[in-house]
Design a protein around this nucleic acid. Structure first.
Lengths: 232, 232
DNA sequence: GCAAAAGTGTTCTTCTTACACCCATGA
DNA sequence: TCATGGGTGTAAGAAGAACACTTTTGC
């Protein structure tokens, strides 16, 4: 047939990259160098290329815009955002990915982005271009849930970490205090969550803590649940 | 710029429509009337139209291909499938939706589909066109999880149902037997899951059962968890 | 009364929570 | 010895699992 029975569109890949920095949940945002929304904050992203797989595009954008190694960093599909009016340039459907990174030095700005920087998620609310506020909210909610049922928290840490480090991730992402003693037991009783390295980290003050690395078990059994009777 | 820096592609919406029929988890499959994969089984779906929202496209396809009312049926985004070689016609990225329907009369075949029919999910394995086997597997896994944390099970039932009906949904979808007595208590103790109608259903044999309708609470608290110490 | 499915009571166990208490280190 | 954070013990309460038992109907 010659008549077009489908929409002409472009497909973008956008990244919600989260980390815990300075005791706050932070997201990587760029300042847009081009129209539309020039000089506005946005999530890093770009268009899908010819013959390119979606996940590969996410890995490429992560590298291009932030210098992070997509193969080393937790990266998972988050959702697809396709409202017809979401991009003033025309029909652009965006596949969003959630990336979790350890606390790293400030990323190097990439080609498209005038500037890339970590910013506390709370400070981004209402300030992002396109529908990126919504994407970031969804990303944070997803991360909060994933902490309960997967070992995602270890992706926020470096190669080795203490139970205290891990607890700090949970406290910051969930925005609620946890009992250090019960948390410790829960983590160590959840088989495959973490693996002892035999090493210890000596802090400037206080008792040395055992160092762990990420375990093999992606899904936690039993899970680390947010209590329903929370303090609030 | 004049050079193209993005992929030319079409966007499809595919539907994984699940129901419980004859004590089996069944999916709605069509027999394809056109190439590619002519006469092969596939999930219903079609291309996104000009200016059409993704969710609206899913509702439209549901109506066109099955006659089901998309506004009355549970419909949620499942994932996006974009492998470059997934469609022999060229680059087609598919946004898949999960739909849950009560046990209904055999759907009427639509325009594009030579035939639409319910088929037990177990019988579809390895027989679907494109990457639809994978999409359907993801749909089933999503449904299993959603039964734990949301009132999705009520979407499998008609407007009113008994606790026994609801238990049957869980047993079929999870493929494991549940204790009727404990299940009953769990459901009724989970506030907002179901709402009593005051009516009773008189069976051909046995004690009448109270009829309920879906409650207001979409997310269940406490959840109905699959036991980890399962029989198998 | 009997069959069948609905629903309640009860016990055992496991998980969660709260918190007292001890441990290992540097200053 | 003190401050600091790491880590164990333990008892009360909540939730889940297993199952004996009662209820309500049609036949």
């Amino acid at each position: 047939m010659t008549t077009r029975d489908h929409a002409v569109l472009r497909l973008a890949v956008d990244l919600a990259i989260l980390t815990v920095r300075e005791n706050a949940l932070q997201a990587l945002v760029i300042t847009r160098g081009n129209e539309p929304f020039r000089n506005r904050l946005a999530l890093p992203g770009g268009f899908l290329r010819e013959g390119e797989d979606l996940h590969a595009a996410a890995v490429r954008e992560l590298d291009e815009e932030t210098g992070l190694d997509g193969d080393a960093i937790h990266l998972e599909p988050l959702g697809t955002y396709g409202h017809p009016d979401r991009d003033p340039r025309g029909r652009v459907v965006s596949v969003a990915y959630l990336a979790i990174a350890p606390d790293l030095p400030t990323p190097e700005p990439g080609s498209d982005a005038a500037e890339a920087a970590w910013m506390p998620v709370a400070e981004t609310r209402g300030r992002l271009a396109f529908d990126h506020d919504g994407i970031l909210s969804d990303a944070v909610e997803r991360a909060r849930i994933q902490l309960e049922f997967t070992n995602l928290a270890t992706a926020f840490c470096g190669p080795t970490f203490t139970v205290g480090d891990l607890r700090n991730i949970y406290e910051v992402v969930w925005d609620r205090p946890l009992d250090p003693r019960n948390f410790s037991r829960k983590v160590l009783n959840t088989s495959g969550f973490v693996k002892p390295t035999g090493q210890k980290r000596i802090p400037q003050i206080g008792r040395p803590a055992a160092l762990y690395q990420r375990g093999d078990q992606r899904t936690l059994n039993p899970p680390i649940l947010r209590s329903t009777t929370a303090t609030h």
